[in-house]
Amino acid sequence: MSDNINFTGFAQSEQPQPQSHSRASSSTTQDANDGVRHDNNLLPIANVGRIMKDALPPQAKISKHAKETIQECATEFVGFVTGEASERCRWERRKTINGDDICHAMRSLGLDHYADAMHRYLQRYRETEELAAALNSGGGGRDGRAMEIDVRAELSIFKGSNQEDDRD
Results as ranks from 00 to 15, higher is better:
residue 98 N to A: 05
residue 129 E to C: 13
residue 112 D to A: 09
residue 160 G to R: 08
residue 158 F to L: 08
residue 114 Y to S: 05
residue 113 H to F: 09
residue 53 K to T: 14
residue 44 P to N: 07
residue 75 T to I: 00
residue 56 L to E: 02
residue 109 L to C: 08
residue 84 E to D: 01
residue 25 S to K: 12
residue 110 G to H: 00
residue 103 C to I: 05
residue 64 K to T: 15
residue 58 P to F: 02
residue 77 F to V: 00
residue 70 I to W: 01
residue 45 I to H: 14
residue 43 L to A: 06
residue 156 S to E: 10
residue 46 A to G: 07
residue 57 P to M: 03
residue 39 D to E: 14
residue 153 A to E: 05
residue 106 M to S: 03
residue 48 V to C: 07
residue 90 R to A: 08
residue 48 V to M: 03
residue 21 H to S: 14
residue 21 H to T: 15
residue 72 E to P: 02
residue 137 S to I: 13
residue 161 S to P: 09
residue 34 D to F: 06
residue 111 L to G: 04
residue 94 R to L: 01
residue 58 P to K: 08
residue 72 E to V: 04
residue 26 S to T: 13
residue 45 I to E: 15
residue 133 A to R: 13
residue 37 R to K: 11
residue 20 S to D: 12
residue 138 G to C: 08
residue 162 N to T: 08
residue 137 S to R: 15
residue 136 N to M: 07
residue 42 L to H: 10
residue 38 H to F: 07
residue 115 A to E: 06
residue 159 K to F: 03
residue 13 S to F: 08
residue 99 G to V: 02
residue 163 Q to G: 02
residue 149 I to S: 03
residue 166 D to F: 06
residue 157 I to R: 10
residue 99 G to M: 02
residue 16 P to L: 05
residue 39 D to S: 15
residue 5 I to H: 04
residue 10 F to Q: 04
residue 144 G to M: 01
residue 26 S to F: 12
residue 92 E to Q: 13
residue 142 R to S: 13
residue 2 S to Y: 12
residue 69 T to R: 06
residue 40 N to F: 11
residue 47 N to M: 06
residue 145 R to K: 12
residue 109 L to Q: 07
residue 157 I to F: 14
residue 36 V to C: 10
residue 92 E to S: 13
residue 53 K to E: 12
residue 39 D to H: 14
residue 81 V to Y: 02
residue 97 I to S: 00
residue 3 D to N: 15
residue 57 P to F: 05
residue 43 L to R: 01
residue 129 E to L: 15
residue 22 S to W: 10
residue 62 I to G: 08
residue 147 M to E: 13
residue 52 M to H: 06
residue 101 D to T: 01
residue 116 D to H: 12
residue 94 R to E: 02
residue 19 Q to I: 12
residue 138 G to Y: 04
residue 43 L to D: 01
residue 27 S to C: 07
residue 129 E to T: 15
residue 35 G to Q: 12
residue 121 Y to W: 06
residue 164 E to F: 02
residue 56 L to S: 02
residue 36 V to R: 13
residue 117 A to S: 05
residue 25 S to F: 06
residue 3 D to Y: 12
residue 39 D to N: 15
residue 7 F to R: 01
residue 78 V to Q: 00
residue 151 V to N: 00
residue 2 S to L: 07
residue 94 R to Y: 00
residue 133 A to Y: 10
residue 128 T to E: 12
residue 93 R to E: 05
residue 117 A to I: 00
residue 104 H to Q: 09
residue 30 Q to R: 11
residue 6 N to Y: 06
residue 113 H to D: 15
residue 68 E to S: 11
residue 105 A to D: 01
residue 82 T to W: 00
residue 154 E to S: 09
residue 89 C to Q: 08
residue 146 A to K: 07
residue 162 N to Q: 10
residue 33 N to I: 10
residue 150 D to A: 15
residue 25 S to N: 13
residue 110 G to T: 01
residue 18 P to D: 11
residue 155 L to S: 07
residue 140 G to E: 11
residue 76 E to G: 06
residue 90 R to I: 07
residue 14 E to I: 12
residue 151 V to A: 01
residue 95 K to S: 10
residue 60 A to R: 05
residue 109 L to H: 05
residue 139 G to V: 05
residue 106 M to T: 03
residue 82 T to E: 00
residue 108 S to F: 06
residue 96 T to K: 14
residue 7 F to M: 04
residue 134 A to T: 14
residue 59 Q to Y: 11
residue 22 S to T: 15
residue 139 G to K: 08
residue 95 K to Q: 09
residue 166 D to K: 09
residue 125 Y to L: 15
residue 163 Q to Y: 07
residue 139 G to F: 09
